[in-house]
């Protein structure tokens, strides 16, 4: 039993070491601004279309589903409230995180994994660069900046999607939908909706970097690392979502 646990415990310990070193290096020179900007472009701007698309669809589907339930109570005018709360607190942050995990944790793991198996990471260390500073920190900082922004965009587009359905199918007026959607939001909801993507971003970037940097075994190893990075970061998104939600629920 102990032997069975040894490997995951060792991996988790290695992950914490990487996380600790990365956090410590965030403000330490040299700061590779160009790499940070490049990663922000790749992670943020690159993910924008798909995040907006999924945001819109989640808003549309939520509105359609909620309107049916609310119709039973004759409360379709409250559609905006329900959609807004669901998107801002849960759907926006989680769906965006899953997309970023699928798109960027995999990208990070495969890029760093390829560098690892072709000895580029060893070469970097041999030639005077700390790979954590050069490779991990820019990806961590870029994801931590871009993911809350992406989530905010996904939330907004989701509310717009809801607006279209609320006006064209349910029969709400735009003003009715929009004011009920905005008025219901409290500071707690916004804080929750922005805290989640920030924490998710840190986990997604670190998990991607962690599996990338411990890749072994050639191209097959790169594939394996990529898969692990996506699966593990997605699972962590849900686990952390539960924890943060519980914290905010207990605060209200």
């Amino acid at each position: 039993m102990l032997d069975y646990l040894k490997s995951p415990v060792q991996s988790f310990q290695d992950f914490l070491i990487l996380a600790g070193r990365s956090m410590r290096n965030v403000a330490k020179p040299p700061i590779y601004w160009n790499d940070i900007l490049m990663q922000m472009d790749s992670i943020g701007v690159g993910s924008l279309p798909i995040v907006a698309l999924i945001g819109a669809f989640s808003g549309i589907v939520m509105t359609l589903q909620m309107s049916r339930a609310l119709e039973t109570y004759g409360a379709t005018s409250q559609t905006g409230q329900v959609v807004s709360i669901s998107i801002i607190r849960e759907l926006g942050p989680v769906l965006t995180a899953l997309l970023v995990a699928g798109r960027n944790a995999s990208g990070i793991a495969s890029e760093l994994g390829s560098m690892k198996v072709t000895e580029q990471i060893d070469a970097m260390r041999a030639l005077g660069t700390d790979p954590i500073q050069k490779l991990v920190v820019p990806r961590l900082v870029a994801t931590a900046i871009m993911q809350p922004l992406l989530t905010a965009i996904a939330d907004f587009v989701g509310l717009l999607g809801g607006l279209i359905i609320a006006v064209t199918i349910i029969g709400n007026t735009a003003n009715q939908y929009w004011s009920s959607a905005i008025d219901i939001l409290a500071l707690n909801d916004i804080a929750q909706g922005m805290t989640k993507p920030f924490v998710f971003a840190i986990v997604i970037a670190l998990v991607g970097c962690f599996y990338g940097m411990r890749t072994t075994g050639g191209t097959q190893g790169v594939g394996l690392s990529t898969t692990k990075a996506v699966v593990v970061s997605s699972v962590w998104v849900f686990v952390i979502d539960v924890l943060i939600t519980q914290i905010f629920v207990s605060l209200t």
Binding site: T118, E119, Q120, D122, A123, M124, A126, D130
Partner: peptide, 18 residues
């Protein structure tokens, strides 16, 4: 880093940054 700067290494896989 400073000690390594006095050593040159050619890696088996080349280790060139692509």
């Amino acid at each position: 880093f400073e000690i390594r700067s006095e050593v040159g290494i050619l890696f088996q896989e080349g280790g060139l940054f692509d």
